[in-house]
């Protein structure tokens, strides 16, 4: 049948991407998995180290805590932003979209260095706050958790705003009108109708931000202190300084497993498919 032939031919279209994925992702992951249980000797000792020793556990916890906090702040800033973008007039909407997009188009490295300049004890922000007399001593905005969070939230905000924007713009205006007509004041209408309808966007945004945060390297490395080391930095350090491929591989596998777990749990618990159209 001609249609079968067409369908078979069409299947050829997925070959390049699949090939790339196999060579550049599946194979290295498998290789890492192998290294994590075979380097330097066979066994689960690398995992025992990663999950058993306090310093490594601390780093894993840091990673989760920083990623979690970044996600929460991105949501708190991103939701009102996306909401305003959806409900703004066409001109204001375009301006707001560019406000989110332009930093997004700028290199992460550049933005992180920019924060470095801004947040220093003698940086622009401290100078300004001191200048207007709001503070007497420079705030410690850098080489600590605050710096990491400021940098990461700013850099990852678009990943929250755009999925939210996409979902919110598809929420029919009629639902909020109906809610008001049925006697719901603005806040109850928002929490009972609008927010639940926006949940797919919230989930997509949170998952994107959280998962990208988990593997973050440059920003915590430049803006964080010794106590804010994340897994990616640890992996880099282990390989670069100690050539410890086994432990690094185990850490990478733990990160991967954690990510997969988050996907599954989100899907199961909320029963909502994250919005992949974003």
């Amino acid at each position: 049948m001609p249609s079968t032939v067409t369908r078979d031919r069409r299947a050829l279209l997925v070959i390049p991407a699949t090939a790339l994925l196999l060579v550049a992702f599946v194979y290295p992951v498998f290789w890492l998995l192998l290294r994590s249980v075979s380097d330097p000797v066979w066994g689960a000792h690398n995992y025992a180290t990663a999950l058993g020793e306090v310093i490594y556990l601390k780093v894993l916890w840091n990673t989760v805590a920083i990623s979690g906090a970044t996600t929460v702040f991105c949501l708190l800033f991103g939701y009102p932003m996306a909401y305003t973008m959806v409900h703004a007039g066409p001109a204001a909407k375009r301006i707001l979209i560019y406000i989110v997009l332009i930093p997004f188009w700028t290199s992460i490295l550049v933005r992180t260095f920019a924060w470095l300049v801004l947040l220093q004890p003698k940086g622009l922000i401290n100078d300004m706050l001191l200048g207007i007399g709001l503070i007497a001593e420079p705030l410690e905005l850098i080489y600590n958790r605050t710096g990491v969070l400021i940098g990461m939230v700013q850099i990852l905000l678009p990943f929250m705003v755009f999925p939210l924007f996409s979902v919110l713009s598809r929420i029919d205006d009629g639902y909020m009108k109906a809610a008001a007509n049925l006697g719901a004041p603005p806040l109850p209408a928002f929490f009972r109708v609008y927010l639940p309808l926006s949940l797919p966007g919230v989930l997509t945004g949170c998952m994107l931000v959280f998962i990208i945060s988990l593997g973050y390297f440059i920003t915590p490395a430049l803006l964080g202190g010794r106590r804010d080391i994340m897994v990616a930095q640890l992996i880099q350090e282990q390989i670069d300084l100690f050539g410890n491929w086994g432990l690094s591989a185990a850490l990478a596998m733990i990160l991967l497993a954690g990510t997969a777990l988050i996907f599954t749990v989100t899907y199961k618990v909320f029963g909502v498919k994250p919005d992949i159209r974003a």
């Binding site: 029919d172 009629g174 639902y175 009108k177 109906a178 809610a179 008001a180 007509n181 049925l182 006697g183 719901a184 004041p185 209408a189 009972r192 109708v193 639940p196 309808l197 949940l199």
Partner: peptide, 29 residues
Amino acid sequence: PPYKRDIGMVFQHYALFPHMTVAQNIAFP
């Protein structure tokens, strides 16, 4: 404001809340 008017309305495209059951929709007001 609309929510204090106590006026019912059937919308052109119904605007039933998709995340609620039929009973929850009717219970809403």
